[in-house]
């Protein structure tokens, strides 16, 4: 375990050093993410010009939901997403060979190799907006509900990790899985919507099977109303199931890896 931690920290140090070579670019990307976040908040602002409540969520509750979703997304982007995106290229070019030859878990190396420090800055922005929105609602802050909120956010990040890893594992069979990366950005857009708004089959699919409507909704609701055991319990179970399944699927895909001649 400590060996893995050691490797992870070393990879993060390396990524940080690499990012700092292009400082201007680093700052611009932080600005990009910040603008998209601001765009979401502006949209909500426009909606609440005309209504007081959407699917039972008041203005500040909605801001909390959006910033929570942003926090989950930025944590995911900081630590995992870029690595998932690189997987098809590693497979196509045969560079995955180098990972296979290392005496550690291939899945671990593949999913933690790069780290995006810029996203961490955006996490802090999301946290500040979350805290402000929570104070406006107002939420009764306690050590217990803040800890639960943060733990649930970690679960949300793990759901994204597992699901995207499963999608990208398909690139062992398809040479170009780039379309899935764009597809994933579209899924993020569902995560920041109130789950009460979704009805019918779509609601069932995106809550219980592809739990995008839980990753931000559950932590935000928990902070507002206290812990809801049913949703929280389900989120824990589905995270465990998806995490295990994505690992199995990755190993299964790995057996179909044929490398590429260079």
């Amino acid at each position: 375990m400590s060996r893995y931690l050691h490797i992870w920290l070393a990879q993060m140090r390396y990524s940080l050093a690499r990012e700092m070579q292009f400082k201007g670019n680093f700052i611009l990307w932080i600005l990009v993410e910040f603008l998209w976040f601001a765009l979401q908040l502006a949209f909500i602002g426009v909606l609440y010009f005309n209504v007081n409540e959407i699917a039972g969520w008041s203005r500040w509750e909605m801001v909390l939901l959006i910033s929570t979703s942003h926090l989950v997304q930025q944590l995911f982007q900081a630590f995992v997403m870029i690595n998932c995106m690189n997987l098809p290229e590693l497979i196509r070019t045969g560079k995955l060979d180098f990972f296979l030859a290392q005496p550690v878990s291939t899945r671990f190396l593949v999913s933690t190799r790069s780290f995006e420090p810029g996203s961490i800055v955006n996490c802090f922005m999301a946290l500040i907006v979350s805290a402000y929105a929570a104070a406006k609602i107002p939420v009764a802050f306690s050590v217990f509900n803040i800890t639960t909120y943060l733990l649930l956010i970690v679960l949300g990040v793990l759901v994204h990790c597992s699901f995207m890893m499963m999608l990208m594992t398909l690139s062992f069979w398809m040479t170009r899985a780039q379309g899935f990366v764009n597809a994933y950005y579209n899924l993020f857009q569902l995560a920041r919507l109130p789950r009460e708004a979704f009805k019918g089959v779509a609601g069932v699919i995106f809550t219980w099977f592809i739990p995008m409507l839980l990753v931000a909704n559950v932590p935000a609701r928990t902070l507002i109303d206290g812990i809801g055991w049913k949703e929280t319990g389900y989120l824990i179970v589905i995270t465990a199931v998806m995490f295990t399944a994505s690992g199995r699927f990755f190993n299964f895909g790995l057996r179909h890896y044929t490398s590429a001649s260079s």
Partner: peptide
């Protein structure tokens, strides 16, 4: 094709969100 189909996911989100907005209006 994947891009086009994935483009329907946000549409789905819009449909439900606006439905909720109009219900509350």
């Amino acid at each position: 094709l994947v891009r086009a189909i994935a483009g329907f996911v946000p549409l789905l989100g819009s449909v439900f969100l606006w439905k909720a907005v109009f219900a509350d209006a």
